[in-house]
Design a protein around this nucleic acid. Structure first.
Length: 429
RNA sequence: GCGGCUAUCGUCAAGUGGUUAAGACACAGGAUUGUGGCUCCUGCAUCACGGGUUCGAAUCCCGUUAGCCGCCCCA
């Protein structure tokens, strides 16, 4: 038997109903906040992600799925295809593509700020785990063209509102400022001062982080390292005036918007492009992957990808995790109301006539199904019940002879003979 | 990339070395011959795969594969 690839999932009809409901609510809410949905390719030039996500990130170095056509694969084998230059990659996240589209379509020439949302699959070749899949659905928004702290507050408010409205009862909204290129050098120095004499006792990863990006050491999960960095200086104490003001304003705006939040100096977003605001929304009870939503400000990104110097802020939200978190608390759905008709015909002639009725019903926008397996009356009725139909329409020899149909109301257990026209009138009302 | 756990019918799930592998749900058929939801009856698995141990294995051992969970990272 052929199975789906590791980390991929099927969504069966029951699941899809929930997913679609959630997605539609998200689109509606984000439109209320002024975000308009855009769509972009499932894969892009590999280079976009290398530059947009960061060449040193885990995502780029080991988690991307490459895409290659059969023809190009042959070329690659003979050395006529340059993976680096021409290679394509299944999108591992959304922001880079949105930026590319923004630049390529010159959306910056339109009224600013430009507020965009997106929804779709992303792919990362990670080891599957609770709340983590190789194909996962992400919803996200980006506000481009303003560095006003209100924009940061607005996207955080939107994310928190979405999660709350989805039925997740308790969430933690954590915010931080990761500074900017002006304050980083000062902070890095302070960090190195603290750690320089403990360097040898840090784990290997952290030793290499020491020079490249000491900020990441704070995030280290190795217990021994955690002890060593106890009482480490925090970025928040080293913000430049600009960042400090921005962070203060963000908090004022969040208060004004009624968003409950906590400051967590330890939030350091893994993607390279974040400056100033970084935030995360978590929910306990999801297992190890408790983060539902993460985002922040990325003022240098558009320019870095070859566009004008335009600031931006946004978030990505894990729809799968959100659904998991919300599902835990969703009570059993009631049996939906009976609706539609189930048409049961005995013999070819009866069936043919019912097909005409079927078409009439559907023409009127009503739900209608035909019994196709030539089951016994009993079995067919059972099927009608299982389909949750309101009416079972029965046509056998007797009905055929009278030119009528038997209409059984499955809810009231009442049955009467009438013509097809009468039934159509009644059901239309 | 590293570590732990699990693998019995479509689903949930008994069974831990010994003749026909419980049960429940689902599914199919039926209960004096054209009628549902309740009830009753009937049917429905050689225990992931490959080796090994043993007189004998779903039950013990090894390997493979898959799934789950954790580390890392992230949504």
């Amino acid at each position: 038997m052929i199975q789906k690839p590791k980390g991929m999932r099927d969504f069966l009809p029951e699941d899809v109903v929930k997913i679609r409901e959630l997605e539609q609510r998200f689109i509606r809410l984000s439109e209320q906040y002024g975000f308009r949905e855009i769509r972009y390719p499932m894969f892009e030039k590999t280079e976009l992600f290398e530059r947009g996500v960061g060449e040193t990130t885990d995502i780029v170095t080991k988690e991307m799925f490459r895409v290659i056509s059969a023809a190009n694969l042959e070329k690659y084998k003979t050395g006529d295809y340059d993976l680096k230059k021409e290679g394509l990659t299944l999108r591992p996240e959304g922001t880079a593509s949105v930026m590319r589209s923004f630049i390529e379509n010159k959306l910056y020439a339109q009224a600013m700020p430009m507020k965009l949302s997106y929804l779709g699959s992303n792919f990362r070749n990670e080891r599957p785990q609770a709340g983590r899949f190789r194909e996962f659905t992400q919803f996200g928004v980006e506000t481009l063209g303003s560095d006003d702290a209100f924009c940061d507050a607005e996207v955080i408010d939107l994310a928190a509102t979405m999660i709350r409205q989805s039925g997740v009862p308790s969430i933690d909204t954590l915010i931080n400022s990761v500074g900017c290129p002006v304050c980083h050098p000062v902070f890095h120095e302070a960090l190195r001062d603290l750690l320089s004499d403990k360097l040898e006792r840090l784990c290997g990863d952290c030793q290499s982080r020491f020079d490249k990006n000491p900020l990441r050491i704070i995030d280290c999960k190795v217990p021994a390292d955690q002890a060593l960095i106890q009482g480490h200086p925090v970025m928040l104490d080293y913000l430049c005036k600009d960042c400090r003001d921005h962070f203060d304003q963000l908090q004022h705006y969040l208060d004004a918007l009624g968003v409950d939040f906590e400051i967590d100096p330890n939030i350091v977003r893994g993607l390279d492009y974040y400056v100033k605001t970084a935030f995360e929304i978590k929910h306990d009870g999801l297992g190890a992957q408790s983060s539902i939503c993460g985002g922040g400000r990325y003022d240098g990104l558009v320019e870095n990808l070859g566009g004008p110097d335009i600031p931006g802020v946004g978030f990505g939200m894990g729809m799968d995790r959100l659904l998991m978190a919300a599902d835990l608390y969703r009570e059993e759905a009631d049996r939906p109301e009976r609706q539609g008709s189930f048409l049961i015909g005995f013999g070819p002639q009866a069936k043919l006539e019912l097909v005409e009725l079927l078409a009439e019903l559907r023409e009127r926008g009503l739900i209608a199904e035909l019994e196709v397996n030539d089951r016994s009356m009993k079995a067919a009725m059972k099927q009608a019940d299982r389909m949750n139909a309101r009416y079972a329409i029965i046509v056998g020899e007797d009905e055929l002879a009278q030119g009528k149909i038997a209409v059984r109301d499955l809810e009231r257990s009442e049955q009467q003979l009438m013509t097809a026209e009468e039934f159509l009138r009644r059901v239309e009302e």
